[in-house]
């Protein structure tokens, strides 16, 4: 996956979980022999809450686990699905692996770039959409495909993509 690298004014939410979220953090930590095991789900919670995993968020999460921020940074940089930069309200991830590529993913990526006016790894100026390319998402039977937020969009054509984009606000 190409990382989103566009700088956008970060949302200035104070970095702190609600009481309910903190209870959830404690619950998750209690599920593992080493509470550190809950780092991944808690980082996802943090990303959903604060928009992306900034260095400040890493430090905050490190505090919840009594870890050094360096060790949270290790995890965040290892996995591709934690965003270290602000991302758009919607994330469009086009598969460019073998099956999708043979089925025309390259053309679709060009189409998306042109329609959105951004390059892969960038976010539209209005903060609506971040465009990424990713490796195989296990839906080769419906190639070419892409993931829009948590949803799979299959058997894509440029027209179908246009309709999908219209639905993203």
């Amino acid at each position: 996956m190409t990382r989103a690298t566009v700088a956008r004014t970060p949302v200035t939410t104070p970095i702190a979980f609600s009481a309910e979220q903190l209870a959830e953090v404690r619950r998750l930590q209690s599920l593992y022999p080493n509470p550190r095991g809950a780092l991944l789900p808690v980082l996802h919670m943090a990303q959903d809450t604060f928009g992306y995993v900034s260095l400040e968020v890493e430090e905050y999460v490190a505090g919840l686990f009594s870890l050094s921020p360096a060790h949270v940074h290790e995890v965040v940089t290892f996995y591709t699905m934690y965003f270290q930069q602000p991302k758009g309200r919607h994330v469009v991830s086009v598969c460019h692996n073998l099956s999708c590529h043979l089925a025309g993913a390259g053309t679709l990526v060009d189409h998306l770039k042109q329609r959105l006016g951004i390059d892969v790894g960038e976010t539209t100026e209005d903060g609506r959409i971040t465009l990424l390319t990713v490796e195989c998402l296990c839906a080769c039977e419906a190639a070419p495909m892409m993931q829009v937020d948590d949803r799979y969009e299959l058997n894509l054509t440029p027209e179908k993509i246009d309709r999908i984009l219209e639905g993203l606000q």
């Binding site: 260095l55 890493e58 430090e59 870890l67 050094s68 921020p69 360096a70 060790h71 940074h73 290790e74 940089t77 290892f78």
Partner: peptide, 27 residues
Amino acid sequence: CDEITRTGEIGIFNRGDHSEIGLFPGT
């Protein structure tokens, strides 16, 4: 840094052949 000084400054960031040791940015 984890076990002897217990200060934990150094980590291994990124992955695969891009993995590298380093500090939490700004420290």
